[in-house]
Amino acid sequence: MSILLEAKGLSKRFGGLQALSDVSFQIRRGETYGLIGPNGAGKTTLFNVLTGLYVPESGRADFDGKPLVGIAPHKVASVGMARTFQNIRLFGNLSAIENVMIGRHVRTRSNFLGAIFHTPATRREEIATQKRAYELLEYVGIAHRANDVARSLPYGDQRRLEIARALATEPKLLALDEPAAGMNESETVVLRQLIEKISGDGITVLLIEHDMKLVMGLCDRVLVLEYGKVLAEGVPAEVQRNPKVIEAYLGAGAAAEVTTGESA
């Protein structure tokens, strides 16, 4: 399986805080890759570096063989990497379908003059954009809310709408920043099914999540950060048994119990 995203030695500082320190990892094409760690571990900072919101002090990241670090966020989307946010960022006064159509514009060709004069090519593209937006709403399970104002949607539907908007950019990699945050159990089940569907359709997924059951059940491999550094990486079963990971989440006593149990 080829490498889609590779990070080498990424470091990011905010004043006296070292948010990331020499972070390196690889994400293979087609896999679901989890990113976990305690609060303040640097997970969202890493997301923001990879998606162009922050520029690191050192290190590099290559996406599909091309440099990723330092390019503008909208250009990150155009090369094939889309993301959602920990705090939902929708256009609340627009309808669900309009939100998805906005995401689709990174793949449209209409120019300023075409929009002014409403040329035949522009009209055809608008029709195609609306059609594709509706298809994506169907894909995430909320097509029946297509004309509803985004802010009126239930919380779980807003999460799925944000995913539909990200999918509208035709990503090779979809980066999800805590998509299950604030969801109840039934909403999380629906979310898991959607992520499995996305992965099954060949899109690589990078998942930040605090819900360990969700991460361990979905991800092919997991990267653990602590204080901005790589603590562990491996398949879920390995990570769950790693004493350093257990200590980071549950304390040194819990890690000692696991180590003692394995020795026995």
Rank of each mutant, 00 (worst) to 15 (best):
K75I: 12
E98R: 03
E178I: 05
V79T: 13
L194P: 09
G261P: 03
V239R: 07
S152Y: 13
E187A: 04
P154L: 07
G70F: 04
I88V: 15
R221D: 06
I97V: 15
E6S: 10
G261E: 15
I203F: 11
N111V: 00
E6Y: 04
R145W: 10
V106D: 04
V205T: 10
R192Q: 11
E31K: 07
S95M: 06
E57P: 03
F112R: 14
E135K: 05
G103K: 04
G65F: 00
G9A: 10
R109C: 10
L176K: 07
L174P: 11
R159M: 03
G37S: 02
P171V: 00
N242T: 02
P73G: 01
V230E: 12
I27P: 06
G200L: 13
N39Q: 13
Q158I: 10
P154Q: 09
A96W: 02
L136Y: 06
I203H: 04
A146L: 04
I127P: 00
S11G: 12
G182N: 01
Q193A: 15
G59W: 06
I203K: 09
I36Y: 10
A41T: 00
A248W: 04
Y134I: 08
I71N: 00
G261F: 15
L4D: 01
L17W: 10
L173M: 15
G114T: 03
P171E: 01
T84I: 05
E262S: 04
L35A: 08
V23R: 07
G70I: 03
A264Y: 11
P73Y: 05
G200S: 14
E226G: 01
D220A: 08
D220S: 12
A128F: 12
G59K: 08
L137K: 06
T260I: 01
T259H: 06
A143V: 02
C219E: 04
R60W: 05
R145D: 13
S58D: 12
E31G: 10
V215R: 03
G200Y: 11
V224C: 12
D211Q: 01
R151K: 13
M1A: 09
L94W: 03
M183W: 09
M81C: 01
V222A: 07
V205N: 12
S263L: 11
S24G: 10
Q193Y: 03
V100L: 07
E247S: 14
H118L: 10
M1C: 01
Y134R: 15
E257G: 07
E135I: 04
I246L: 02
R60T: 15
A255E: 09
L174H: 08
E162F: 08
G16V: 08
R123Q: 14
T119K: 05
L225G: 11
D157W: 07
A19G: 06
G228L: 08
V258E: 15
L20D: 05
I246P: 03
